[in-house]
Each structure stands twice: as structure tokens, then as C-alpha cells.
Amino acid sequence: MENLWIAIGVGFIYYLAYVESPFIQFFFKEAIVIGAAIGLIMGDFKTGLIMGGNFQILYIAGVMAPGANLSVDSQLACCVAIPIAMSTGMGVEEAMVMSVPFGVLGVFLDNFRRTVMGYWTRRADKHALQANTKAIMFDGIGGPLIFNVIIRWIPVAVIVYLGANTATALVEAIPDWLMNGFRVAGGMLPATGLAMILVLLNKPFLLVYYVLAVVITQVASVPIVVTAVVGAILGILHVTFTQDKTAAA
């Protein structure tokens, strides 16, 4: 019974992550928030928060690849892997690797959603001809929100519910060498997210600053806020000096 409520709650968190109202999504798309919310539901806020923080490193790039197509659904990955990890006591590195297939599943779900949502736009076309603004409001808000309950909330609740009941047996069945490999992979995976951001910044010369940051932080332990200040100063210096050059030329 308890599992059922957890499953419904986690499904709702996933629903909020993809409710696609930016005001709500600024919060619920973030792995840290998802982890904390799952922690609250499962009665261990702190563990959830720490899990969320770890997942946030892996999925630091958010969800979008250039062109706004979903490449990995980090929210689904979090919503499935965090509850399972918390209930089985699995380490966070292993949980990250376990989450990858769900990240892929989420992409299919999103493509399906964006295809069927076209229905509401076509309905709105008709209502626009009648200048029926109330109906358009429903086509653009209420209808999709109801659709999303079916597309997002229910399937994830089912996955989490089934997962909670079988996960312990499944996790115990994983041999040690594979678990060890998962742990190693979990330590390496954040590289992919960080590389994604570097690609999004889209200027190869920026790698100079990337390497500089690695070198500085390797030789000295610097608080993160200090590194941000140093980064900002470098940014200002870069702009100042490159501008002078173009002005002189």
C-alpha cells in the first residue's frame, strides 16, 4: 500500500516536470528538486536531495540538444532510478547507470506526446474561426494537461510501482563484477554532460579556459564561488581585450 502512494507521488512529480508550464518547470525539471521531492515522499528528504545533486551533475546540460529535440529524458531517469536506489540502498553511481535506459524511454514518450498534442492545435484552428476564446483556452491549457495525466503520470506511476516490488530482487541478482563496472561508469558519466555544455557554447577557443580551470582546481582546492568569480573576471578580461583589438584594427 505504501508503495502505491509513493508510485502515485513520483508519477505526479514527473507530471510536473513535463507539465510544460515554464513557471513550474524551472523548478521541477531540475534533478535536485526532483530528488528532494522524491525524498520528501519517501520520508528521507536528505538522501533524496543528495541523490538529486548527484544526478544533476550527470544531467547538468538539462534535457535539450541543439534544436530543442529531447536527447535524454533526465527527469524520467531520476524519477525511476532515485526511488529504486533509495528503497534498495543502492549506491548513487550504480543508480546513475541504471537510469540510462529510462532516459531513452522518455525520449520516445516525448515524441509520442508532441505528435498527439497536434490534435489540440487543429481543434484550436476551428475555434479561432468562431472567435471562441474560451474554447481556445481549453485547447491550449486544459486539454493538454488532461492528456499529460495519461501520457506522463500514469505510466511512470506504474513503472515505479512495479519497480519498487521487483527492484530488490533484480539488484541482488546483479553480479559483483557488473556492479563494480556500474560504479566506475557512474564516476565517469558526468563527463558527457559537461562535454555537452561545452558543445552548446559553440566556440572551440573556449577550451583554453576549460583547461585552465581544470589545472587551477587540480593544484589548489578553491571554493566553488571563488572559481565562479575568477571565471567571471576572465570573461570580462577576454571581452575587454578582444574588443580593443578589433577597435584598433
Binding site: 565517469m188 563527463a191 576549460y210 587551477i216 575568477v230
Partner: peptide, 25 residues
């Protein structure tokens, strides 16, 4: 464009910091 450039430098720098902190091999 200058604002974007300056902020991208900050972004790339932070990714370097995160590489040290969180990528472990």
C-alpha cells in the same frame, strides 16, 4: 555578442571546475 562571449568564458571555466570535482577515474 560581447555579453554572450564573456558569459561563455565563465561557462567553459565552470565546466573545467566541475570536471575536477565530479569526474572520477
Amino acid at each position: 555578442k560581447s555579453l554572450m562571449l564573456g558569459v561563455s568564458v565563465l561557462g567553459a571555466f565552470m565546466m573545467g571546475v566541475m570536471t575536477t570535482n565530479y569526474v572520477s577515474i
